[in-house]
Design a protein around this nucleic acid. Structure first.
Lengths: 223, 223
DNA sequence: AGATCGCGATGCGCATCCTTGTGGTGGAAG
DNA sequence: CTTCCACCACAAGGATGCGCATCGCGATCT
């Protein structure tokens, strides 16, 4: 499989490129958006892995330009947290999926494979589902049993993470990283607090509870 | 196939025009942007081949003007080397493809054919609808529940963007870019202000509200 | 033709409301 | 009985919306 990685941070770029090569893919890596635009339009890749922040031409503009030039290669965005706007814009701009740094390599690998596998020119990963709960990332809307639920930004981000790793346990530390961008471990109980608030909205009013507590570990949402 | 070539350099213009004629196309050639604007709006071409640098009215402005006038004829830009930025700018302006000089004639021919072949992208999107709200782009009229509403230019542009991406969230950043043409992020709240005014006209007087605020993200109009 | 006037459109400042993290307390699980 | 988790109330900070001043344009009069 041919993969182009566009990432200006050398360490991250190597980390990704080496990992993917070890899995048997042909990987090219570039640091500049401009270079990537040229390369991606001339060569034929199966997947592009693109950092949102790039020198020269940022990732978003790069993908916009590619789409405008009718290059339909699936794109996986790497976004360094936070920017809720960033993610929405990324998806709207024609990104097909995104991954919030920091991420586990296995995660990246799985997403890349998923992107390459699915038929081209498809709509992005736009909807996450668990049971009768649906989350539409572009509309930024959540419904359960057909009923609309509105969530605050933090609640939304939290639920999104849980849904993206549906079936797996997310530790407090992982959630602090991906939702709050806190890498060290301060004495805080934000996670518990927000899980509680989230439950009040998506579990309490319904029959079955989706968010399970895993004592001593973290939380998990059912497949 | 009818093709209009807009290029001020006589040698290049002849090179292109003759080549295309030899392939059996009907080719007109003009040297001035202004002439091209008139011709392209009155005659019916399959493809325009436009140089970026033109005397009088440059290629970029020409295409912007055409798009504003709802002329959807596909455009192939000719740009003189290098300027990757130019390419992006051109694509944003509504150009459909790019060719960097110097180029091989075969390349040009192939791109022109590709442009003509593909289904018209912006075909006759003349009316935007959401619920009982209708926007007629040509007449520049908006009605809701059969009642005419008049909007100021900014309000109209804002509503148009929201309708074009109906069902998705548009962030403040995206709106600043598409409605105000502001690419950096100034400390301004124009978006909120105008959304407020727009609501006063299209939502307040009616039962259901169409424009939803998505806290922390942006605005969305219902599908 | 030029200058002045008046009105409407636009963006900014500020008040308001909402969101979110903290600390504390009670309760459940092991 | 201890530890971990759920939930509550509160305060601070941030996001949002509305009134007001300004700017620009077109009309009118000289």
């Amino acid at each position: 499989m041919r993969i182009l990685v566009v990432e200006d941070d050398r360490t991250t770029a190597d980390y990704i490129a080496d990992g993917l090569r070890r899995e048997g893919h042909a990987v090219d890596a570039l640091a500049q958006g401009r270079d990537a635009l040229v390369r991606a339009t001339t060569e034929d890749y199966d997947v592009l892995v693109v950092d949102r922040m790039l020198p020269g031409l940022d990732g978003l503009s790069l993908v916009k330009a590619l789409r405008a030039a009718r290059v339909a290669t699936p794109v996986l965005f790497l976004t360094s947290l936070g920017g809720v706007d960033d993610r929405i814009e990324g998806l709207n701009a024609g990104g097909d999926d995104y991954l919030v740094k920091p991420f586990a390599f296995g995660e990246l690998s799985a997403r890349v494979a998923a992107l390459a596998r699915r038929p081209r020119m498809q709509e992005a990963v736009t909807e996450l589902v668990a049971g009768d709960l649906r989350m539409d990332l572009l509309a930024r809307r959540v419904t359960r049993a057909g009923q609309e639920i509105d969530l605050l930004p933090r609640e939304f981000a939290l639920l999104e993470q849980l849904l993206r790793r549906k079936g797996r346990v997310l530790t407090r530390t992982m959630l602090l990283e991906s939702v709050w961008d806190i890498r060290f471990d301060p004495q805080t109980n934000v996670v518990e607090t927000h899980v509680s608030r989230l439950r009040a909205k998506i579990d309490k009013p319904f029959e079955t509870e989706l968010i399970k507590t895993v004592r001593g570990a973290g939380y998990r949402i059912e497949g």
